[in-house]
Design a protein around this nucleic acid. Structure first.
Lengths: 244, 244
DNA sequence: AAGAAACGAGAGCACCGCTCTTGACAAGGG
DNA sequence: CCCTTGTCAAGAGCGGTGCTCTCGTTTCTT
């Protein structure tokens, strides 16, 4: 199964090797197989959801035996965590790309573009979205590895929020309570806490709307979901910049 | 185990029975046991979450054998569905009670009271909240039984929304797109669609905020969650009534 | 009182996550 | 060059799961 890999490695070792990281054949094979495991697991999740993910089924698809998977992931939870990290990264990348593609427009358009991009990704990968923003598995505690990829999208939203604050007339906003103001000042020092609070409200609204739609709570209520979501974004953007 | 039930029934049958529905001993026992099954299942879920719910464990706790449970619920999914319906009902009741207790105040206070009550219930019953508003189990499709209990809380929110619309000066709101306007007019005929859209935005924000908090996305971001959530409600209420 | 319906118990099936052991193979030092 | 060491896939096996079927027993209905 891995013979082609091994032979490829031999060639690499014999010929001129520009790779700065001299990966041994085993290390290469290991990375390759780890990727294949994650890929098929992701495929299974896309079809049947996270709770139905079975190590044995993944192993069967890969032509190996279930116990062999434990060489690569110490437990089912570990595999799920790896997929969660990847999903966080994917949604972060989608948001960044949408922001960049709209960076010439005004900040409101950037927020709208990011919102639509995130929703589009969620609709295209519902089970992965559920993995990240749905209810976590009962005993699951987010390992530290997830914190960094999770911050990618919030960074994008914060950036857009700053841009909005810069380009539009500052609106008179209600001051958050002292504790909240201090906490928001800690995570966004260059923004007035009232503005950051408004951004988090918009964040909650955005993910709330996507979750409501994806988890079936808009069924027989709203049908043209594209238009509805766009209007919600309009309301949020309007609230950002409408002067009192 | 059920002997006390049987004897109680005998007494009921012999003595004066005012029950308008002449339940047989079997029917009474069935209702009783069904309730016990749901209660222990709810307890298990409160401790370990829905995905860890095991019919065999529930049966063990009740001193019966797993196959006996199938006399009451045709499948694990059916039991879960019953619990979902109960959870919908519970959150609906909490919302109604909060609304009633604040019905003397102005409409903004009512919205705030409902919001805090729902969040409080979610924090007290996180796994049940996840059951209802978290990611549904992969193959799960909401049966028609869930629609009616699910509408309880939305009805409360709609009522409060109407009250807000009545008592405060109508704000100039952006008109939703035609399709959205038509759909919102269908579910709330006596409200301008723009106002209903604002209500749904606030709804999404409320559940988004609760979900973000409950599912760990506010970790190391916001610590005084009570104050933060209250401020979010303040922003929503303000948006309801602030004139442009 | 007799037949029908509902019930609890038990055995059994296929599947799951996970552990342990075994034998094959590559990597690197003597 | 061989030989030790570490890594790997495979297999058997354990306890657990949802679910089905059968078999006596109990309860309701007629």
């Amino acid at each position: 199964m891995l013979s082609f890999l091994v032979s490829a490695l031999v060639i690499c070792h014999n010929g001129p090797m520009a790779d700065p990281a001299p990966l041994t054949a085993r290390a290469r094979a290991r990375a390759e197989i780890t990727g294949e495991i994650k890929a098929t697991a992701r495929r299974h999740i896309a079809e049947s959801g996270a709770t139905a993910l079975s190590l044995r089924a993944v192993a069967r698809d890969l032509g190996m035996v279930s116990s062999a998977l434990y060489r690569y992931f110490p437990s089912r939870d570990a595999l799920l965590t790896a997929l969660i990290v990847d999903a966080f990264d994917a949604v972060g990348e989608v948001a960044e790309k949408a922001d960049r593609s709209e960076s010439s427009g005004d900040a409101g358009d950037r927020w709208r573009a990011v919102g639509h991009a995130v929703r589009r990704w969620a609709l295209d990968n519902p089970h992965e979205y559920a993995l990240v923003y749905g209810s976590p598995v009962p005993g699951y505690v987010a390992p530290p590895d997830t914190i960094e990829p999770a911050s990618r999208i919030t960074t994008v939203l914060m950036t857009v929020l700053s841009a909005i604050a810069e380009e539009s007339i500052q609106r008179v906003l209600p001051e958050p309570p002292a504790s909240t103001a201090a906490e928001l000042a800690a995570i966004a020092p260059d923004l007035p806490p009232a503005q950051t609070a408004l951004g988090m409200a918009a964040w909650a609204q955005m993910f709330g709307a996507i979750s409501l739609e994806l988890f079936g709570h808009l069924e027989s209520v709203v049908y043209d979901r594209d238009a509805f979501f766009d209007h919600l974004l309009t309301l949020a953007i309007l609230e950002f910049r409408s002067s009192p």
